[in-house]
Design a protein around this nucleic acid. Sequence first.
DNA 1: AACGTGATCAACCGCGCTCAC
DNA 2: TGTGAGCGCGGTTGATCACGT
Length: 526
Amino acid sequence: MYNEMNGGDGWKMSKCHEPSSSVEEANGGDNMEGEGHLKKGPWTSAEDAILMEYVQKHGEGNWNAVQKYSGLARCGKSCRLRWANHLRPDLKKGAFTQDEERKIIELHAKMGNKWARMAAELPGRTDNEIKNYWNTRMKRRQRAGLPIYPPDICQRMLDNSEESPNVGSLMNGDNQHSDLSPEDNFNIPDVEFKNLKFPRAYPPYGPTIFNVPEISMFEQSAASSYSYNMMFPTIPHKQLQKSDTSYNSLDVSIGAAVPEFNHYADYSCQKVADLPKLSSPCIPNLNTNHQFHGSYLPGSHAGVNGNTSSVPISGDVKMELPSFQYLDTQRDFWGMRTSPVPSAESFDTLIQSPPADQTQLDPVSPQRNGLLESVVYGSKRKRGSKSNLFQKTADNCMPRSSTLNPCETEWEEPWDPISLIASVLTVHTPISMGSVDEPQSVETAQDHYGKHETVFQDLAYFPRKKEYVKQIDLTRPDGFFDLGWFGNPEDDGKDQSFLKDALGALGSAELIQSDLKACGFCETQY
DNA sequence: AACGTGATCAACCGCGCTCAC
DNA sequence: TGTGAGCGCGGTTGATCACGT
């Protein structure tokens, strides 16, 4: 029995391998595991009845005791899962409504693969349901070559990251992110950022820009096995390996650079939108046809200084960038405009060849970025109520996004110029394709924008920071430094080395061009 | 009707957390 | 402070269903 088992040998309930000496008729049959005949597999109605009766008598929690008191030959873990996913009286059955679907998309954009938290925002829905729905949807859209997030959501997130008053109040305790301190988010693994330092003071967006969970939204999605089409085209690992030296440098640098820029969401996209008008190493001359008219630093593989100061790190870092890259050119099934996206075939190719070592070095790994938040969140949750699931759920509803009207959801995602740069590159990437599931008018970026010089006009809806950009001389490679984007001016440039790393990395993005061409991702030009 | 393929969903598993001792 | 129990989360798997050929 239960007590006997726990008295023994360090056996852990979570392993679900506990033996059972009490098997009732509900437990009869097959799928009995091990000597103790713990049943696995689908639950029978008899088992459900036993479990429900138990919960009615004893309440939720102490799931390991279920076996003791009810004789149910299921491990506590299995009981909890069954109850939470199927037997809870407040569960909502049936397919997701449109509102719920929309909400899920928004929540995912907001918090990544935090299914439990998403479930807390969707009364009557379980994390498992949401997870399954999302994965299914992800697959479907991936196959269709559609962006994961509808452009309007991207747009709203961008808008709100700029204008929402909550952007600066993320640390004020009004939402789940309030648990994070900026310091927490400075904990970037040294191995990835030896030369990259965060400026500590960065008002007024300081706290926000280090809002890891927000950042994780795309990264996490991108990191999931279904998420590649929302990213900047992922260079197949094999392709990356073609030239170990340069690619290692490239993707490590990019990978190191991106999170840095991610954290500086306050210099808005508009700045980057202006980039084609300027010469900057931030926009490497990916365009062999000089559509950017930008001077590309000679030898920019090595960055601003002619060499990359990024610490060489072996391995690949997936270039995760948000689906914002599909900015404004086509319509998806939401009726929203989407952009040309690579062919489904291309995606399949890419999907089947994910970077193998992404988890090793990915500096924007959702596991890392979301970890602290998860911990904090989980901690709070557990402290809330241990016996009442419903109470726990209610306690953890995030205050501001509880509405089912997605239009009312406030987004807090910062936007990062690196992502946008990548988006620009993608927008500039004429790709012929067809959507499998959702045929759409396909036009190349060049078709759409007429002239490449105007491509950034479509990025102009990133508001406000335009004038900010204009204040600096972005015709110089070091123009960004003038703006103080990348470091606290008070630091006298001490912390600017990381920017040079980043710029160097972007300079290395020249290699991306050949990569993308090599893998057939882009047909003509950038 | 048989078969193959993809979608869906329930359940399992491993990991890591909190808490109590 | 260390250890184990209990629990929750996220990822994955496998069974089943639906649909097309």
